[in-house]
Design a binder for these strands. Structure first.
Lengths: 120, 120
DNA sequence: CCGAATCCATGATGATACTG
DNA sequence: CAGTATCATCATGGATTCGG
C-alpha cells in the first residue's frame, strides 16, 4: 500500500526524513544496492565501489550496522575475513533502491539518446 | 517496468549512482518531497523544513536547479518573491520519494508499536 | 521585510601511510 | 585483509549584513 505524499506530514515526524536519516550518507545507497545481491567481504565492496575510500567505507558500514541495516560478521582466520550482509530491515529497503535503479536507467537512456535529460 | 537490480551493473555507469549523484545531498530528498505538492516560496520551504539553514537551502536549491530538477522563478516585487517548482524531470522522481515515504511510515509504525525497528 | 551574500565554525568525506 | 591514524578538503551549520 502507498501512503499519501500529500498533504504534507506536518503533525508528526516526516517519514521521508526518517528514511533519509538512515540512508542519506553519500555512499549508503550504493552500499545497500551492492549488498542486495548477497553478502560481501570488505575488500569486495571496495572493489565494486572503487571511488569510495577505505576510511569512508568503514565509517558508513559501521553506521549502517548501528542503524540495524547491515550485519557484520568477523571470522577468526588468517588472513582475516569480515563479511557484511543486509539485515531483514536492510532488505526491506529494496523498493527504494529499485526505484532509484529504474529512474537512473531511464535517465541514462534519455541522455544517451537525446544528449539531454529532459523527461519527455 | 523494473530494471534488474542484479547482476550488478559493472559494464557501464551504475544507475543507482546516477540517481544518487542528483539527490544525495542531505536535504534534497526532503525538498523534492515538499515540492511534489506544488510550487513553494523560499520562505515557505524554510518554514516546513525548519532544521535546514537559509544558506544550505539556497545552495541545495541552486544545485537542483542546475541539475534540471527544480525551476526557479523570481518576481520583481516588493517585498521580493521567489518561487521554486519541480520540472518534469523532478516530478519523474516521485516514485523514489513515494517508496521512501512508504518505508519511513512502516518503520515509524514498528518503532511506535514494538519499541524497535525489527522488520518482522 | 524577503531572499541571499558573507564570514567563520563544525562535521563529513578524501588521501596517504601505517598496523594487527 | 581489513582496517586505523593523521592530516587535508569539502559540505553543512550559525550569525550577521545587505540590496531591493
Amino acid at each position: 500500500m502507498h501512503y499519501p505524499l500529500t498533504p504534507d506530514c506536518t503533525g508528526g515526524v516526516c517519514p521521508v526524513e526518517t528514511t533519509l536519516n538512515l540512508i542519506s550518507g553519500k555512499w549508503k545507497g550504493i552500499i545497500l544496492y551492492r549488498l542486495l545481491s548477497g553478502k560481501k567481504r570488505f575488500g569486495e565492496l571496495k572493489k565494486i565501489i572503487p571511488a569510495i575510500t577505505f576510511r569512508t567505507l568503514t565509517l558508513q558500514l559501521r553506521q549502517m550496522e548501528q542503524d540495524g541495516i547491515v550485519e557484520r560478521t568477523v571470522y577468526a582466520e588468517v588472513p582475516p575475513r569480515v563479511e557484511y550482509a543486509l539485515t531483514d530491515l536492510g532488505k526491506s529497503m529494496k523498493p527504494i533502491i529499485q526505484s532509484m535503479c529504474d529512474w537512473g536507467t531511464n535517465y541514462q537512456k534519455r541522455v544517451d539518446q537525446t544528449g539531454n535529460p529532459a523527461s519527455n
